[in-house]
Amino acid sequence: MRAADILPDHLDDGTFNGVSVRKGTVGAFLANARVWANPLTSANERTTAENDIVDALPALRALGLFDVLAIRDAGLQALVDSH
């Protein structure tokens, strides 16, 4: 299956398991996870990344991301588990 089979190029979002998910949600989660886990990240940037991670969790769960991929960073896993 290709990305276009899930969400065609002309669409910016789709509904998965009853949740609207924007194109780019998984990529944004990965980028925010890198920022959040980086010890050189400022407190303000870390807070912004954390808020964006938490906001994306319903969509990521609707996609089943955490059913097939495990988070290796214990702190990030704890953040995800707490929401």
Rank of each mutant, 00 (worst) to 15 (best):
R46W: 03
A62W: 04
A37N: 11
D81L: 04
D73V: 08
R46E: 05
V80L: 03
G14R: 10
V54W: 01
P39I: 03
D13L: 13
H10S: 12
V26K: 03
R34T: 14
W36V: 00
L7Y: 10
N38T: 04
N17I: 09
T15Q: 12
S20C: 15
R34C: 08
D52W: 05
R72M: 14
L79H: 04
V68R: 14
L79D: 01
L57S: 10
D13T: 12
G75L: 06
S82A: 14
A59Y: 02
D52F: 06
G18W: 11
D67E: 14
A62T: 07
P8F: 09
G24P: 01
I53C: 02
E45W: 05
P58N: 05
A31F: 08
T41P: 00
A59F: 00
D13V: 12
A4M: 15
F66M: 03
S82R: 06
E50Q: 10
A74Q: 13
T25P: 04
L63C: 09
T25D: 09
A37I: 01
I71D: 10
A56W: 02
H83V: 07
A37V: 04
A37Q: 10
L63P: 05
A33G: 01
G14N: 08
R22E: 13
L7C: 13
I6T: 14
L7T: 08
L79P: 03
A49T: 00
D5V: 12
A3Q: 07
V68Q: 11
A70H: 09
V68E: 10
N32W: 02
A70W: 10
R46K: 13
W36M: 00
G27R: 01
N38G: 05
L7R: 08
V68T: 12
L69D: 11
F16I: 13
P39Q: 07
A3L: 15
N44M: 14
L60I: 06
I71G: 03
L7N: 05
D12A: 12
L60K: 00
A4S: 15
N17W: 05
L69W: 10
A31T: 09
A56N: 00
A28I: 08
L69M: 13
R61P: 00
A78E: 10
Q77H: 08
L79K: 01
V21C: 02
D73M: 09
P8I: 09
G75I: 03
A70I: 08
L40V: 06
S82Y: 08
H83Q: 09
V80N: 02
G75S: 05
A43V: 08
N38W: 04
D52G: 06
L30K: 13
V54A: 06
Q77L: 13
G27H: 03
M1E: 12
D12R: 13
V35W: 04
A33C: 05
P58T: 07
T47F: 11
I71F: 08
V80I: 07
A33L: 03
I6D: 09
A3N: 09
A3M: 11
L11Y: 13
V21Y: 02
V19C: 12
A37K: 02
F66V: 02
G64H: 06
A70P: 05
R22V: 14
A49P: 00
L63N: 03
T25N: 00
